[in-house]
Simulated scan of single mutants.
Amino acid sequence: MKKNFTINLTVLLTIVFLFGIKSEISAQETPEISTKGDFWNRVQFGGGLGLGLGNNYTDIMVAPSAIYNFNPYIAAGLGAQYNYVKQKDFYQANMYGGSLIALFNPIQELQLSTELEQLRVNRTFKDNFGSASEDFWNTALFIGAGYRNQNVTFGIRYNVLHKDSDNIYGQAFMPFVRVFF
Rank of each mutant, 00 (worst) to 15 (best):
T58Y: 06
V16P: 06
N159A: 09
G130M: 08
Q118S: 15
I143E: 05
G52S: 08
I156L: 12
F70T: 07
G170D: 15
A27Q: 15
K3C: 11
Y147E: 08
G54I: 05
S26L: 10
S165V: 02
D127E: 07
G77P: 01
E32R: 10
N55D: 13
F181Q: 09
R120H: 13
Q171T: 11
I156K: 06
E24Q: 13
L119D: 00
I15E: 01
Y84K: 03
L161H: 10
Y73A: 13
E134Y: 11
L141T: 07
A27M: 11
D89L: 11
P64D: 02
L49C: 10
V121G: 03
D38T: 10
R178N: 08
I156Y: 00
F104E: 04
S23V: 11
D127Q: 13
G170M: 12
P72M: 07
N149I: 14
T139V: 14
F39Q: 09
T6N: 15
T14S: 02
F173S: 07
Q118V: 14
S113G: 04
V121T: 05
G98H: 00
D89R: 12
K2M: 05
Y96I: 01
G170R: 12
I107M: 09
M174G: 02
V62H: 01
V121M: 08
N167I: 06
K22R: 15
F17S: 14
Q171E: 15
E29R: 12
G97R: 00
N8I: 15
S165P: 06
V152C: 05
D166F: 12
Q150S: 04
F142Y: 06
V179P: 00
G170Q: 15
G50L: 02
G52F: 06
P175S: 09
S133L: 08
K126A: 08
V85Y: 08
N56P: 07
Q150I: 07
I7L: 14
T6R: 13
N138A: 11
I25H: 04
E24T: 14
V11N: 11
Y57P: 04
G50M: 02
I7E: 12
N159F: 00
G77F: 00
A140C: 12
N41R: 14
H162C: 03
I74C: 04
F154Y: 08
N8S: 14
F136Y: 15
I156A: 03
F5I: 09
